[in-house]
Design a protein around this nucleic acid. Sequence first.
RNA 1: GCGAGGAUGGCGGAAUUGGCAGACGCGCUGGACUUAGGAUCCAGUGGGGCAACCCGUGGGGGUUCAACUCCCCCUCCUCGCACCA
Length: 870
Amino acid sequence: MPYDPHAIEPKWQERWLREKTFSVKVDRSKPKYYVLDMFPYPSGSGLHVGHPKGYTATDVVSRWKRMEGFNVLHPMGWDAFGLPAERAAVRENLHPAVITKRNVDNFRKQIQRLGFAYDWERELSTTDVEYYKWTQWIFLKLFEKGLAYQAEVAVNWCPALGTVLANEEVQDGKYVETGDPVEKRSMRQWMMKITAYAERLITDLDGLDWPESLKEMQRHWIGKSSGAEVTFTVSGAVEGGASGAGSFTVFTTRPDTLFGATYCVLAPEHPLVASITAPAQRAAVEAYVAAAKHKAERDRMADTKEKTGAFTGAFAVNPATGQPIPIWVADYVLWGYGTGAIMAVPGHDERDHAFAKAFGLPIVQVVAPSPGASGAAATCDVQQAAFVDDGVAVNSRFLDGKGTADAKAAMTKWLEEKGLGKERVQYKLRDWLFSRQRYWGEPFPVLHRADGTTVAVPDDQLPVLLPPIDEYKPTADGQPPLARATDWVKTTDPRTGQPATRETNTMPQWAGSCWYYLRFIDPKNAAAPWSKEAENYWMPVDLYVGGVEHAVLHLLYARFWHKVLYDLGLVTTKEPFQKLRNQGMIVAASFQEASGKYHYPHDVEETAPGSGQWRVKATGTPVKTQIEKMSKSRYNVVNPDDVVRDYGADSMRLYECFIGPMEAGGVWQTNGVEGVYRFLERAWRLFFTTPKGATRDVPNPALVERPLDPDPKAGEKELEKLLHKTIQKVTADLAVMGFNTAISAMMVYVNALTGRESLPKALLDPFARLLAPFAPHLAEEAWASALGHATLIADAPWPKFDPALCVDDEIEIAVQVNGKVRDTIKIPVAADAAQCQQRALASEKVQRAMEGKPAKKVIVVPKKIVNVIC
RNA sequence: GCGAGGAUGGCGGAAUUGGCAGACGCGCUGGACUUAGGAUCCAGUGGGGCAACCCGUGGGGGUUCAACUCCCCCUCCUCGCACCA
């Protein structure tokens, strides 16, 4: 029986588990390496081949680092709170914990089948009481610092579900999953003051080894902009008599254009709107504000082309010109950003320009193109289009002639001197809405006392357990599910004996994932979330791998909590994840009829090989093929269990690596799995053979314990060089996670060894170790049964290469004539330029290409190329 | 609209960062072994041409002895963000 993954894989997996091979402890005698996967949400549908792409990458790295002598921490756990389990609980009438356990067991089994080197002793779930106890504890740290607070905020409320929804879950005023209508409602919610950390969340990005695009996304999300705030007083001289009381402040990044501010706009939610609106305008303004209220914020942002608004009848004084300018209400000004009010400079802002055009407001030019400008930056007709580039101030009295940067500074200084404004930095980032009206999440460890104050549950009474309830639905009067546990809700404050009620909101799913990487370093600690010793040794995470979909939310929330913990002296690193890489998404072909109906890949066939035309096998209906994201509804999900069943875990792992660069994603193709499977078979046959008539493989008799044959004709010295080059290549590729090219190099090596009559073990022993991080089961089997080692290859040292053996004595270089390759010549690697030139010119092909003309110039790049110019 | 990334054989992808484009794998073609092959092994495989050669890295221009790689312009694709003042 040839290579049979099923005969060897379970055996080694059991042994790794039994011997706790990958369980690690703090060991100061070794350098540490902490490799972390973004832990999964254990869904009911199980793993698909996309998950293990990242897991395989981290596993290869952790096995390699381990062989390099590092003490490698590589844990796995479950981000298991969340809505899907709660919905399934309602559907199946089971407790969400039961559903969760079922899903976790399934995920664990699926993951273990792939032979990952996880320290399963550290497994955790965010739903474990011993885990969420500490999530609550950390929450209280934030609460005590004033970073967790309650506020009335506008939320997306879905009456049908009885819960608030995240912005991403709402589209066109409907819940994306069910289509139930969603309305805006003002509710008391828990908020996290992440905005207090905005500046540090931006600056500390600089020191991180993360994809630049991802850092950029976070910077944009935080959205820092510098400018000034300017105070406008409402002028009393209004026709119809709106009282001139009040003033408002605007934020602008272009204080230099203040002279061009020809009107102001308040957001519909701005409190001043009601008080300044003139009687004659009242009906129109109120109608406009009411209409704006009904538009979801997302919709409001969606149609940016049509500008709408209403004139309040009031005027403000432009502090620079002293002139009254009208105050409008318009929904293009957002209440949630800046001050909810703007000064409009239609000459130099596209939105203001569009609005001014729509309502016939004056447009004034206050910036002219710089003298040296060209192209778009040089043309300027502000009546036609806003000029938004930097330039030179005009029509701006004391600013005239100043460049934009100077003008900004001068105007800001002027405003400060007059007490009319000041410099200001503004962030797009808003505080984090931290509560959900759901059951399956961490209860807030707080008590609302009868006197209206909210206090922390004392540390020694943590955890606040999720109470059992009869139904996982909101109450009839719209309270969250936890309100059903009336005995639990009603309690007393242990410090004062005062009656109190418990919080019925729960924390969002992000809470548990904000600190799991810290629990992994000391998961069984009952006295503290983690020990100082463990934190000191293991942190920070050296390599964190996950999907880009967490680019902002999870990674920003976790960084925020980490910084709070840092300020509290609970962690010693400013940032949790030093190096981060994204794995690409795996997609697959799907097959769809013209009617839109999808078919499984095994239900369709190609009309003729290579035709690219496909049809349904049973009916002959033509289907179109397309490459799409894997999803159940598209019938194109590939389950890793099936791949393991057909080809084994090692092939699955290898294909995940070989499909392309790790961060690039790729198309899943069964043929590709067959390709790596064949490679493993060839590798296997170097170590084992099946004797005639035998059912079991025996060590390959060609494997011999002897020194390499020095005779060049034997070719073994050449193979030794190839071995060292392969070690060099694979090692270098691992360092940059270039798994696909590392495997390619190993394929070349195996192809070179294949078919040889005699195989000195010196050529195979290091190769088995190279292969071990990628195909650990096969490597262990070869290591033990064919090479005769008693210890695990997982503990073997990583092979070293001899740089001297990585260079050839003689190399082939190309010879060009006038830039075209005409010949290749073999020269000693040490040949100098003169020798190269001489050898090149001696070539017959080169001579012919030169057509008898003399060489005008010869460029020689040693070890690379010779180019003869004639 | 803004930002980032990308475009290389029939397909997935390589290319030491300016030095023989297409490593490796899939697919395909031919052959060997076979009762058989959808197993295995060997050979071939960017396009054109009998050939010498010519043409080829999305398109156009440029720099250079030499460009997938650097510069300018354009097209298309993917992913973010999107009235953020």
